[in-house]
């Protein structure tokens, strides 16, 4: 699948999850039946356009309830999305991931594909998932720690709400200031680094990554066709080597490697059945990206 088609799908997914357009003008969030269901990506339910519930926020809300009950419903939805798609949710359906990709298209003197410490930082999102999303809400009632202290999607929602309803602006305090700094850091780093929030901080990406090797949708490598040329690894923005590790936990299943492979050795599969007909691209020397890794 070429990048233009993926961009269209991402835009459509972002719009469909935030199609309550009147909310952006009135400052009132959607309160209909759609919010019984969690959307697959990171999309704050306080976004004025949001039509569904955020899975991470809903999970914390369930865990921090006064009387703890196992969150069968929210966890079931998250496991379902993970079992079907794995991190394809990140690559195609998450509005916040899409926003970061759009920011990455802004020209800058430097684009970092990887850097010293990048591999270690990727584990931070698992700590965010375990500590901020699971343990702390269970320990402190009524406090969704990740939403309250870190989530930039919520901050963006707050800004959109306050743009439509000025009464909210007077209520913002130091927590908003802190979260605005986090959002600013994510926005600025997204210009230089591909999807920094997804790589280092997103608890939902961390959760879905656990399913990458076992999801219904997977990547497959035809070892008979693969020559080890490395074209797939060079094009991967998540710094994964798809030929060596086609369902790596960091792979967001964007499909760039599938499109780029000159030998047609990579393809998506659903329950091990190849999907889509792939004609290998003709690679011109101008398409080959120079190595810009800063190690």
């Amino acid at each position: 699948m070429d990048n233009k088609k993926r961009t269209l799908i991402q835009a459509a997914a972002a719009f469909l999850q935030n199609a309550h357009v009147t909310g952006f003008f009135t400052g009132k969030i959607y309160t209909g039946a759609g919010k019984n269901v969690c959307v697959p990506g990171l999309n704050c339910y306080s976004c004025p356009g949001a039509l569904g519930a955020c899975p991470v926020g809903s999970l914390q809300n369930a865990l921090s309830a006064w009387k703890f009950r196992f969150p069968y419903y929210v966890l079931g939805l998250m496991v379902f999305f993970g079992a079907v798609f794995g991190r394809l949710v990140c690559g195609f359906l998450c509005p916040f991931g899409f926003l970061q990709e759009l920011l990455f298209r802004i020209p800058s003197p430097r684009k970092l594909r990887t850097f010293r410490g990048d591999a270690s930082l990727r584990y931070v999102k698992y700590a965010v998932l375990i500590i901020m999303v699971i343990i702390l809400p269970m320990a402190h009632k009524f406090t969704p720690f990740y939403c309250k202290y870190l989530c930039p999607s919520g901050t963006l929602s707050g800004m959109l709400l306050s743009a439509a309803d000025s009464r909210l602006r007077g209520l913002f305090g130091w927590i908003f200031t802190w979260k605005a700094l986090v959002l600013t850091a994510v926005v600025l780093s997204s210009i230089v680094i591909f999807r920094p929030f997804c790589k280092y901080l997103c608890p939902l990406g961390a959760f879905y990554s656990l399913f990458n090797r076992a999801s219904a949708v997977r990547l497959a490598v035809d070892s008979g066709k693969c020559t080890g040329c490395g074209a797939c690894a060079r094009v991967c923005d998540m710094a994964v080597n798809p030929a060596a590790s086609p369902n790596h936990s960091e792979c967001i299943r964007c499909g760039k490697c599938v499109s780029r492979c000159p030998h047609g050795a990579l393809c998506f599969t659903v329950f091990s059945r190849p999907v889509g007909v792939r004609v290998p691209e003709v690679i011109s020397p101008l398409d080959e990206r120079p190595e810009r890794d800063n190690k």
Binding site: K35, G52, G154, T155
Partner: peptide, 18 residues
């Protein structure tokens, strides 16, 4: 439990927006 999700998602989450 879907009602719990609905109840939270249909009120502005003050913690989420800062």
């Amino acid at each position: 439990q879907n009602a719990q999700v609905l109840a939270k998602a249909t009120r502005i989450c003050l913690e989420c927006i800062g």
